[in-house]
Design a protein around this nucleic acid. Structure first.
Lengths: 214, 214
DNA sequence: GAGCATAAGTAGACTGAGTGCAAGAATCAA
DNA sequence: TTGATTCTTGCACTCAGTCTACTTATGCTC
């Protein structure tokens, strides 16, 4: 059974998809703040109450689309080839994402993706990103923790700090790319700088904030 | 004139203080979520509309109390003695804060402060912290930018990444201290670990994430 | 100190997110 | 078919935050 089980399951899937698509369509059309959840519910032909049974908050109507990426870094660390350092695996993964213009890297200029970038700039959505971030941090911290060679008393702190720093860097790089793309630059035009910044950022993670070290 | 100008000014100050104190009192008494802004307004003997003229959101009733710390890191960097590296100045400042049990470090066990720590754990407040954080990041990034010796094309990215990492670390350390204090540990009991973790964290900032570097 | 511009405060209705409840409709297992 | 379970709905409710129009207090000027 791959989940294509009963009719009930299929209906739920369909309802969820209908709500999600109605939401994105309306948000892209009119802007996040100009659309109420009642509008979304109406467009999806569902009651407001049902909408909230599928998505806990209005923000989630947008954010569930990138929810998969929450644990991506943790998966990369766990799935790295033997002998590869966590930072190298993440660096390689990011370079691959940039090369393939993965939307999550901020380096994708497909109109629909750019419109979605614009959506996520809304303050209301941004503040909800925090929740997703901290869940992702915990996951990556756990993955890093497993890799620790010598579990001294500071290993746990190291894992949590490292996870935070790594995800912070990834977010900052993506943010910068998004800003340039939204400013009208093409992905190909932005790519060289994006790559240079990514490499530089991982140098900083590996070797520390040399410029401020004195 | 140091601001003690007209009657109007003084009244505004008094009103602001009355609202703030009513809010904190009620929040500590019953918990953030169990108190409505209408309750706060009533306790401060002010209309709800007036309350929102002084504090833009409910979160701000809590967060304005730590708003001064927003630009603290930037000030430390700018005010450091000549020849001192930014990271060293921040490290020294943090150690001083820990030694003096500055509440912002999370290493303060005065009952009122602990109660305030507990307040800020509320998800609603936490998500609002994000706004404060990004303002602080921008300020620190600007301060770091000024110190950059050689302004290459990557200097700006470096400043923003560095600012993010530094503040992330400070938040994470404070969070850990708060958690232990709220768990019943005394500040003195926690202090040695807090100091060790702070030193370790700055080592990571200076020299990179050695354990994950391979 | 009278008069007027301006700023502060108020009441109350309104929008929009999110919840609680109780009843109705569909699905599933037997 | 029946009965239990689960999904959905409508409606009323709370609470944050805004809008409007009105009243009151302050400060400035003559």
């Amino acid at each position: 059974m791959d989940g294509t089980g009963g009719l009930r399951e299929r209906k739920k899937l369909r309802t969820r998809k209908a709500i999600s698509e109605a939401a994105i369509t309306l948000f892209l059309e009119r802007g996040y703040d100009a659309v109420s959840v009642a509008d979304v519910a109406a467009a999806a032909e569902v009651s407001k109450r049902t909408l909230f049974a599928y998505f806990p908050t209005k923000d989630d109507l947008v954010l569930h689309r990138i929810a998969d990426h929450q644990t991506e870094a943790a998966r990369v660390v766990r799935g790295r080839s033997a002998g590869e350092a966590p930072l190298d695996a993440l660096h390689r993964h990011l370079r691959a994402g940039l090369a393939s213009r993965d939307p999550i890297t901020g380096l994708c200029d497909h109109p629909q993706v750019v419109a979605f970038y614009r959506l996520t700039q809304s303050p209301a959505v941004q503040s909800a990103v925090g929740r997703y971030v901290s869940a992702g941090e915990a996951a990556l911290a756990a993955a890093l923790w497993e890799t620790t060679p010598e579990p001294g008393p500071l290993a746990e702190v190291t894992a949590r700090l490292g996870a935070g720093q790594i995800l912070l860097v990834q977010r900052a790089l993506a943010q910068a790319n998004q800003a340039h793309i939204m400013g009208g630059m093409s992905a190909d035009g932005r790519a060289p700088d994006a790559l240079a910044e990514a490499d530089h950022a991982f140098d900083l993670l590996r070797d520390g904030l040399a410029p401020y070290r004195g």
